[in-house]
C-alpha cells in the first residue's frame, strides 16, 4: 500500500524552472483586464450595434454623411475611440493566449505573435488617426454625399 506523505512534512526543495514563464504579476493584470474591459465593451458594442443596425433605417442608412453626423459630436468620437482601444487590447490579449496554447514550436509562436502585435499597432494607430483627422466636408466632393451642415 502506498503511503501518502503527511501534508505538513517538509517538502524536498523544488528545482527552479530554467525559464520563468512570467515576471511579476503581468498575467494576473491581463486576467483582470479581460474581465474589466469585457464589461465595458458589452455596453460600448451593444450601443454601437443598436445605433448602426437597429435604430432608424439600420444598415441601409450608413454612408459618409451618417459617419460625419456621428463624429461631429465628441460623444461618439470618445465612444468609438474607447471601443477601438479596449476591443483591440482585449482581442489581442485573447488571441495571444490562444497562440500560446496551440503553437508549440518556438519559431511558429514568435512569428504568429509578431504578426499579431504588428496588426495591433497598425489598426490602433490607423483607427485613432481616422477619428481625429476626420474631415466631414472634404473640398471638391459632391454636396449630396456630404452631411447637410457642410453647405449651411
Amino acid at each position: 500500500m502506498t503511503t501518502i506523505a503527511d501534508p505538513k512534512a517538509p517538502r524536498p526543495p523544488k528545482p527552479r524552472p530554467a525559464r520563468l514563464t512570467t515576471r511579476g504579476n503581468t498575467e494576473l493584470y491581463g486576467w483582470v483586464f479581460m474581465r474589466a474591459s469585457g464589461v465595458v465593451l458589452l455596453v460600448l458594442i451593444f450601443g454601437h450595434l443598436f445605433v448602426n443596425l437597429v435604430a432608424g433605417e439600420g444598415v441601409t442608412a450608413i454612408d459618409f454623411g451618417f459617419v460625419a453626423g456621428k463624429w461631429a459630436s465628441p460623444f461618439w468620437q470618445v465612444w468609438d475611440l474607447l471601443m477601438l482601444w479596449l476591443a483591440m487590447i482585449h482581442g489581442t490579449n485573447g488571441v495571444r493566449t490562444i497562440i500560446n496554447d496551440y503553437a508549440e514550436r518556438d519559431g511558429v509562436r514568435l512569428a504568429l505573435k509578431s504578426a499579431l502585435y504588428l496588426a495591433f499597432v497598425l489598426v490602433v494607430v490607423l483607427g485613432t488617426l481616422v477619428i481625429f483627422t476626420f474631415d466631414p466636408c472634404p473640398s471638391g466632393s459632391p454636396a449630396d454625399l456630404l452631411p447637410s451642415f457642410c453647405t449651411a
Binding site: 454612408d63 454623411g65 481616422v130 474631415d135
Partner: peptide, 26 residues
C-alpha cells in the same frame, strides 16, 4: 472571440476609407 477579432481588423480598415473620399467609403 477570434472571429470578432478578425472582423474588427477589417472593420477598422473599411471605416478608414472615410479619409480617402466619400465615394470610396460609400
Amino acid at each position: 472571440g477570434v472571429a470578432i477579432f478578425f472582423f474588427l481588423l477589417v472593420h477598422v480598415l473599411d471605416t478608414s476609407l472615410v479619409r480617402i473620399s466619400p465615394e470610396a467609403y460609400n
